[in-house]
Amino acid sequence: MNAPLRLILFDVDGTLVDSQGSIVSAMTAAFGALSLPVPERADILSIVGLSLPHAMARLAAEQSASVQNSLVEAYKEAYHAQRLEQGAAQSPLYPGALGVLQALHAVPENLLGVATGKSQRGLDALLEVHGLEHYFVTRQVADHHPSKPHPSMIDTARAETGVEAASTVMIGDTSFDMQMAKAAGVAGVGVSWGYHAAESLRDAALVIDSFEQLSPALNDLWN
């Protein structure tokens, strides 16, 4: 009898790659371009994981919708310029990430996917620069879904792959990721090395401190 398929979904920023420097820099450039006070670094990192319009609505709540939209476009321009200039250095992989992706991908029953607040263009560019294009069978991005923590990304990934909720896990560094997993009825694995404090990952089934702990954690969840 064949083993059941398992769907392993990854957040990107703060989970697979350390993009905080580029996010803070692009956000600083966006607010500067409109001559607005730049939010504190901690405030910027607190919105990582949300789709960009939702993130900007939080960071510039006192501004009009028109100004918020201008900030979104200014951020996109700044982030894209950084990507062209820095390449892979813009968002380096966390230690152990590549090895774990390779090991999980090598198991026939495992299907890997992405559920990210990045745009399609941003995700495609990041996967290409790190040579990760062939690892993920489903890629859910902010362009096509409500912002996290709405469960749409996970629901769509499951629909695309045909994997049951009990055989699906969401791995991420923010409370938004864990809330999304809970809303979708799947297990969430929080990672402590990202942009939200580990104690904020209250909806996680468990929290790990390094990529080396991920495979044993998944075995514990499913066995």
Rank of each mutant, 00 (worst) to 15 (best):
L132Q: 03
A78P: 03
E73T: 14
V107D: 09
P95W: 10
R158K: 14
E212H: 08
A159S: 13
D173S: 08
D43L: 13
S19N: 03
H130I: 10
R6F: 04
A65N: 03
P53M: 13
A125F: 01
G49N: 05
L45Y: 01
R121K: 15
D155E: 15
D203K: 07
F31M: 14
G113Q: 05
R58Q: 08
S152D: 00
P53V: 14
E77W: 00
E212P: 00
G188S: 11
V186E: 06
T156G: 01
A217M: 10
P39F: 08
V114C: 02
A61L: 07
S175I: 10
G117T: 14
K182M: 12
S192I: 11
S152L: 02
V189C: 13
G99M: 09
E40K: 14
F31S: 12
E85D: 10
G188D: 07
S91K: 06
G21L: 14
F10T: 09
Y195V: 15
A187V: 12
N110L: 08
D209Q: 11
L111F: 03
A33D: 14
Q179Y: 02
A65T: 07
M180K: 13
H196Q: 13
E77M: 12
A81F: 00
A74F: 08
A106H: 05
S167H: 15
K148W: 04
L9H: 06
K182L: 14
T156V: 11
L9D: 02
A60Q: 07
A65K: 07
A115L: 10
K118D: 00
G185I: 10
P39Y: 04
S215T: 12
E40N: 12
F10S: 12
D173V: 04
A125Q: 09
L126M: 15
I23F: 02
A184C: 11
M153V: 07
L7T: 01
A205E: 11
F31N: 10
V169Q: 06
S192Q: 07
S35V: 12
E109P: 01
P216Y: 08
A125I: 07
P95D: 12
E164W: 02
G122P: 06
E133K: 08
I23H: 03
Y75S: 08
H130R: 08
N223E: 09
D177T: 12
M180H: 11
A78K: 07
T161R: 04
D13P: 01
T168F: 02
P108L: 09
I47R: 05
